[in-house]
Design a protein around this nucleic acid. Structure first.
Length: 266
DNA sequence: AATGGGACCTGCGCGC
DNA sequence: TGCGCGCAGGTCCCAT
């Protein structure tokens, strides 16, 4: 579930509490989440390193360290970073010099931790599209005009634009009043402009409210994000559209649930 | 290029 | 009560 607003919230939360601190000990409670290097090497080269910088690219979180390496964290669907943590039940526990623990929790074990020298060279990072907040309106319109793909799956394509997932794609399209089944290139210039604006508006508003806690996502403090109360369509199948009262419809696109108002969005 | 499916995993809610 | 099932969605991979 964590999408750009949730990862950005975690990034900002982490900056306040762990930046500049030394990792004194790493407990790997489930090695499955460590993709590279080996769990033993991962532990060995992390211990003694200091957290120098915290970045986000798309849904990827990057902790740059004093030893020149970077710890990349992808939360996938159920990953959490909690500080101070509980030591117990976490997949990986990072003990810090302040005596507290940063827990990486992940119920479904889809999450991925990597300790690498040049994180920008990761294939995953190389394939990412532009950051929504770095994108100009003209470039976005140009990108759309080349795509026959339906707009909802297109917004979720990390190679097209980075950071938007299933929840925000539905919310953005509702606010832009665009049918999620429209091919990208079929949008009018005006629709493209509105869509561009709503992407930035929805994402920045969600960041402002600490993200959306619908399933597992929590902030670093363990507290939920507050943006759920602004959701208009996601998870509201059959309930009245907030604008016109028509029941919200749910369809499947690319194997994912899409929520929309069939009257407002066409 | 676009689309569809399965894979990776676990826990929840559902129907029987 | 307990069982099996479908579902949740980020990303990769393969097939058409």
């Amino acid at each position: 579930m964590p999408e750009l607003p949730e990862v950005e919230t975690i990034k900002r939360d982490l900056e306040k509490v762990i930046l500049g601190k030394e990792i004194t000990k790493v407990c790997v409670n489930n090695p499955m989440v460590i993709r590279e290097p080996s769990p033993a090497a991962f532990k060995r080269s992390l211990e003694g390193a200091t957290i120098k910088n915290i970045l986000r690219r798309g849904k990827l979180l990057v902790l740059e360290l004093s030893n020149g390496k970077a710890l990349t964290i992808h939360l996938k669907m159920t990953g959490q970073l909690v500080y101070p943590g509980k030591v117990k039940d976490s997949r990986v526990a990072f003990h810090l010099a302040d005596g507290r623990v940063l827990d990486f929790n992940d119920q479904r074990l889809f999450g991925e931790l990597r300790l690498i020298s040049e994180w920008k060279k990761l294939k995953f990072v190389q394939n990412l599209g532009p950051e929504p907040f770095d994108l100009t309106s003209a470039d976005f319109k140009d990108m759309l005009s080349k795509k026959k793909t339906k707009i909802k799956p297109l917004l979720m394509d990390q190679g097209f634009i980075a950071g938007i997932g299933n929840l925000y794609a539905s919310e953005i399209l509702f606010r832009a009043k665009i049918d999620p089944q429209s091919p990208g290139q079929s949008l009018t210039d005006r629709e493209k402009e509105i869509l561009y604006r709503e992407i930035k508006e929805v994402l920045s508003s969600a960041i402002k409210h600490g993200g959306s806690s619908v399933d597992d996502y929590v902030r670093v403090s363990g507290k939920p994000g507050d943006y759920v109360r602004f959701h208009q369509v996601y998870g509201r199948e059959g309930k009245p559209c907030v604008a016109c009262g028509t029941p919200v419809k749910k369809i499947t696109q690319g194997g994912r649930g899409t929520y929309f108002c069939p009257k407002c969005q066409r």
